[in-house]
């Protein structure tokens, strides 16, 4: 059984199809990349999985259990976590608090306990703080721990967002263009983080990214979307050779682009 099963997803906005009969599966421990030209429906697909959009047809299942009827916050409890294309941090909070919010669904105490801040609430706060510190160490965020997230440099904010998603201890993490707007060095760092997340933390990754070099390097499997439907699925080398994919990206048979 696959970790995530996407079967026949169709999503339309007032008759305009954003996704048409999209199917793919992610196995536990995989890095799967979703690529395609702008407007191909990659982010729409992520939004369907994370619960912001509701597809018209098809099914999305984690461990064979459909999650379509669940609200977004329930899907988080199922082990789903994501980052956004445009940074969506809680700008007024410190980095530490951002990551602590990331653990929200793991924290099991209520309003009254929190107001008294005694016993269970205090113990849990310390316990979760310890886990958050692991993430902070892993992503090298310790210099920024107490700084307000909204005032940090762009690359760091991207990392904080990754940390927030990671703090939830997800089984599957959806990364929406984590390298967008980064320079070469930051891109390499981010690629390393993604590989480490996958290998050391054992998190399955669904990556949406435009940087073909990174995608072809780190992915186990690539799904190519074009105009809302799946153009090709397979290992990076296979996809690179695919005639349809080359045509979609370049509009012709020039093979120099994908093969770098």
């Amino acid at each position: 059984m696959s970790l995530l099963d996407v079967t026949g997803i169709t999503l339309t906005f007032r008759g305009l199809a954003a996704l048409m009969n999209v199917s793919f599966t992610i196995e536990e421990g995989e890095i799967l990349s979703l690529i395609g030209p702008n407007g191909a429906g990659k982010t729409s697909m992520l939004n369907c999985i994370s619960g912001r959009y509701h597809p018209d047809e098809g099914d999305i299942a984690i461990d064979g259990k459909s999650i379509l009827s669940m609200k977004a916050h329930r899907r988080t409890e199922m082990g789903l976590s994501r980052t956004f294309q445009n940074i969506a941090l809680f700008k007024g909070m410190s980095v530490l608090d951002n990551l602590m919010v990331g653990r929200h669904s793991q924290m099991k105490y209520g309003l009254l306990a929190s107001m008294l801040y005694w016993g269970k609430a205090r113990r849990h706060e310390d316990m979760h703080r310890r886990r958050v510190e692991d993430v902070i160490d892993f992503l090298g965020l310790s210099p920024y721990r107490h700084q307000v997230a909204g005032r940090l440099p762009y690359g760091v904010q991207k990392r904080v967002e990754l940390g927030r998603a990671l703090a939830a201890e997800p089984r599957l993490i959806l990364l929406d263009e984590p390298m967008a707007g980064m320079n070469l060095e930051e891109t390499e760092d981010m690629a390393r983080y993604i590989l480490d997340i996958n290998e050391e933390w054992g998190v399955t990754v669904l990556l949406v990214e435009h940087d073909m070099g990174v995608v072809m390097d780190i992915s186990d499997k690539v799904v190519v979307l074009d105009f809302g439907s799946v153009l090709a699925t397979g290992a990076p080398e296979e996809v690179q050779q695919d005639k349809d994919v080359i045509a979609a990206y370049l509009g012709g048979e020039d093979e120099t682009f994908l093969g770098r």
Binding site: K71, E77, F90, K91, G92, M93, V101, H104, S105
Partner: peptide, 15 residues
């Protein structure tokens, strides 16, 4: 505070 700052990602983190 997460709801105030960004309600969409608040929902994603499980609020």
């Amino acid at each position: 505070v997460s709801i105030r700052d960004h309600h969409l990602s608040a929902e994603i983190v499980g609020v």
